[in-house]
């Protein structure tokens, strides 16, 4: 049974934010701040880089637009030229609507599935779920978790450090129940 890391509870969003700043400043990199809703300014407090999701969405949107325009052009010019009242085959203004719709559709897939990919979900088992109290985090509790894999992690030191910066209900979690 290997340990996973330590969690500590904080009182409020602002306590969590200030604690996150202290955790960041003491050099931890493999930690997370759990809250029932996103907290403004937490990314800077944790020292996180900008999310890469925008690139995924942009690439998907571009793919959608090119696919939409390409599909219509190919169908009307190559695969199935359909003469309707002598109207042009390459009627690019008429293609723009489906091009736009497919760009939006692909970007939306990029946003949602890209978010899942970067968040590594679905993941149904995780050591934090073994804590009984941690489940309050989806209602009204604020937690910091520091993982064992963090290069400067030391169980006792980390525990006392979390206590020092105002954490309560400190728990050591294991990989298996």
């Amino acid at each position: 049974m290997a340990n996973y890391g330590v969690i500590a509870k904080f009182e409020s969003p602002s306590a969590l934010l200030h604690a996150a700043e202290k955790v960041r400043d003491s050099g931890f990199t493999n930690f997370d701040c759990h809250s029932p809703f996103p907290i403004h300014g937490m990314d800077e407090a944790m020292g996180l880089k900008r999310s890469k999701l925008g690139f995924i969405i942009g690439a998907m949107g571009l793919t959608g637009a090119l696919f939409g325009f390409g599909l219509q052009t190919w169908v009307h010019l190559v695969e199935y030229p359909l003469n309707i009242s002598g109207k042009p085959y390459f009627a690019y203004p008429a293609y723009l609507i489906i091009t736009f719709e497919l760009m939006v559709l692909f970007s939306a897939f990029g946003a949602v599935f890209g978010m899942m990919f970067l968040n590594k979900i679905p993941r149904f088992n995780h050591p934090v779920f073994y804590s009984d109290k941690f489940s309050d985090v989806s209602s009204d509790a604020f937690y910091i978790s520091i993982e064992l894999t963090d290069p400067i992690f030391d169980e006792n030191k980390t525990k006392s450090f979390l206590k020092e910066i105002g954490g309560t209900d400190i728990e050591v979690l294991s990989d298996e129940n």
């Binding site: 997370d32 759990h34 979900i121 679905p122 088992n125």
Partner: peptide
Amino acid sequence: LGWRGGNR
């Protein structure tokens, strides 16, 4: 989906 509410 195993949402943990972490800021990451």
